[in-house]
């Protein structure tokens, strides 16, 4: 098999110290290859969110090493990790996290501004991304004028506008009803299938995990099962 895109070796994460120390991850080994669609499942407190933060380069492991392609992430500085996020990762959050009182177009443009892209190109790309998520005609609307499903689609457009290598989705359907959840999941599937974006998704809903090609279960900070599934 080829070199994995993401390689976790004996990752541990401990919060606090001494008697109050809490071990959220207790030696996780995980390889993720390019083009995979992985659902990470587990109860709250199982360490799945901690893992997601580490995978998203928002947090660093206490011990162990994390390779992203050939980069050893745990040796990077805060700024270097920010640059890695900027150029390779896209994020979709449970709470959407759009900028309020800011149009859908400007929200989607945001990561491109940080990439220093010129205005015309930025607008063009943002429009295309909104078109992909089916929000053509809603560019000037602010989050308050959009439904929950539409807001999450704006957030997804913001995540894919930079054409990331990996899309990290933290409970992307957590705030949506079944119908909207299905739409979002189908969208993620199509990105994975058509654009070749690797997707890592945290969820606790088995229905949503069914869309993934691979499901990893977490119990008490360790991988308890890792299964490939046929669509």
């Amino acid at each position: 098999m080829s070199q994995p895109l993401i390689q976790l070796k004996q990752i541990t994460k401990t919060y606090g110290s001494g008697l109050a120390a809490m071990q959220a991850l207790r030696g996780v080994d995980l390889d993720i290859h390019s083009g995979e669609f992985v659902a990470i499942m587990g109860h709250s407190g199982s360490g799945k969110s901690t893992l997601m933060n580490i995978l998203g380069c928002l947090d660093t492991p206490t011990t162990g090493s994390y390779f992203f392609q050939t980069i050893e992430v745990n040796t990077l500085t805060r700024n270097q990790r920010a640059l890695l996020r900027r150029h390779y990762l896209g994020f979709v959050f449970q709470g959407f996290n759009l900028l309020s009182r800011t149009s859908a177009l400007e929200n989607v443009e945001l990561p491109l501004i940080y990439r220093g892209m010129a205005k015309a190109e930025r607008h063009d790309k943002a429009r295309k991304a909104l078109d992909i998520v089916g929000l053509t005609g809603w560019e000037t609307h602010t989050p308050a004028e959009l439904s929950g499903g539409q807001q999450q689609r704006v957030a997804i457009a913001r995540a894919i506008v930079t054409e990331p290598t990996v899309l990290l989705a933290d409970e992307p359907t957590g705030n949506l009803d079944t119908e909207r959840s299905r739409e979002v999941m189908e969208m993620l599937c199509s990105f994975n299938r058509d654009l070749g974006i690797t997707i890592l998704m945290v969820t606790h809903e088995p229905d949503m995990a069914e869309y993934a090609k691979r499901v990893v279960h977490f119990v008490d900070g360790l991988v308890s099962s890792d299964t490939e599934q046929k669509p």
Binding site: G56, A82, R86, L89, F91, N97, L110, Y114
Partner: peptide, 16 residues
């Protein structure tokens, strides 16, 4: 705060 978190997550540098 949340918005700043979002900016940092999508790759804004501290100095930005």
């Amino acid at each position: 705060t949340r918005e700043i978190g979002t900016r940092l997550a999508i790759g804004a540098l501290e100095r930005e």
